[in-house]
Computed example of a mutant assay.
Amino acid sequence: MTLHKVPAFGRRSFLATGAAALAMPALATRGLAQQTFTCRIAHTEGIGTPITNAFDAWTAMLNERSGGRIEAQHFPAAQLGGLAEALEGSRIGTIQATTAGPDSEEAIAPEIAALGGAPGFIYKNEAHVDAVLQGDLGKKASEIAREKTGVEFVAYGETGFRHILAKRPVHSLAELAGLKIRVPQLRIWVDFWTLLGAAPTPLPYSEQYSALSTGIIDAIDSDVFSIEGFRFHEQAKHLTMTGHWFLPKAVRVNAAWLDSLPEDLQDVVRSSAQEAFEEQRRVNRALADQTLETLKTNGVEVFVLPADELAQMETATAPLFDQFGSVSPETAEMIAAIRALG
């Protein structure tokens, strides 16, 4: 965990306020009338990625539009811990905001997990994603998250469609056999890659680079921005474009903290998040092809998996819709509602 010194300005202000309180009680009372609320924003997204840039923008919006009543602090790139720590922190309120795919709620609220792309191939294109997340289903997911996990989804960003980055070429479904591919520590991801014949290896996100370097894994699946941002391409040079999984990113705010704010500041949090991440989605889509070209110049071989091979992957993993939906009637209904919008 990165330790941050208290800024010198903050220390001076504290000492000055203490002196003023002793000398001028009336002035100190007026100064204390404006309560401030700390908002620690922590996540695992890479420096320079569109989603981290959006969090930078949101942090600035919160500080400015609240008139200083919200003190927003941004800790990207796992500075305060990995995904598990960020999720738990957002639930219990040790951090106030983070981001993760809705599939991270698989154990607590599996019907929400379906919005996170679970199981794979549930989203057909970006228009389908928007119809789901920016509509009634996205609002419903936020309500369920509040009830079951203690967080509110105030906005949705995205990292985009995920592809396979491997240390050896993967040009067909058959070449996935035995491939040691890193997956999140979630059952649905393990089941997905098992059905494709790979050897899924659950690891924390922060361990992917070193695991590729040491041979613990042969591959990861990732969006192109994370491949560049975390420099995974230094350890694996073969990118197979599959688009098998679209990963939205729910902007998760601790509900108890949000409810503790005055009503006008609650509005600031929600409206600024929606504004920042609407722009994030636009930028993410506009820059995807440019980032792919950058990877090529860095020596990455890019292979577009043929349509018939993609169809075989989709067919092989199709049983997961029924398997995942069997968890609860609500999950089955959510999966059906998402697919109907595609």
Rank of each mutant, 00 (worst) to 15 (best):
G120A: 07
Y209E: 01
M61W: 05
R65G: 02
G82F: 07
Q290Y: 06
Q290L: 11
G229R: 15
P169M: 07
R182C: 08
H43K: 00
D56H: 13
G31K: 10
G18L: 10
G215S: 06
D289K: 09
F9Q: 10
G342P: 03
K167P: 09
I216T: 15
T291H: 11
V268L: 06
L133E: 07
H43S: 00
G135C: 03
F161I: 00
T294G: 08
R11K: 08
A250S: 10
Q134K: 13
A211R: 06
Q134P: 00
L341I: 06
D223G: 14
F55A: 10
E314N: 11
P25I: 02
S206T: 12
T17Q: 08
A250I: 09
L165F: 03
G243N: 14
M241R: 15
S328Y: 06
L186V: 11
V302A: 02
L115S: 09
M334P: 04
E71H: 14
R65C: 06
S272H: 01
I95C: 12
K249E: 15
T98M: 13
I122S: 02
D218T: 01
E45M: 08
F303R: 09
G82W: 04
H128G: 04
A286I: 10
E85V: 15
P169V: 02
I227S: 06
K237L: 09
T194P: 08
A114F: 01
T317R: 11
D259H: 05
L22H: 00
L212R: 07
Q79M: 13
S66C: 14
D322T: 14
V151P: 07
T17L: 05
E111L: 03
R11W: 00
D56R: 12
G120H: 06
W58P: 07
T294P: 02
A318H: 08
A199Q: 14
S272K: 01
L83C: 12
R40M: 06
D221K: 02
Q266C: 02
D308I: 07
T297F: 04
A28K: 06
K249T: 05
D322N: 13
E207A: 13
H4R: 13
V190N: 12
E158L: 08
R30Q: 11
K237W: 01
T59H: 12
P329E: 09
Y123C: 03
G68R: 12
H128M: 10
R162W: 08
D136R: 09
H74D: 07
T331H: 11
L287P: 01
A118Y: 13
K180E: 00
A311N: 12
A8E: 10
I122E: 04
K249M: 15
T2V: 15
F225Q: 14
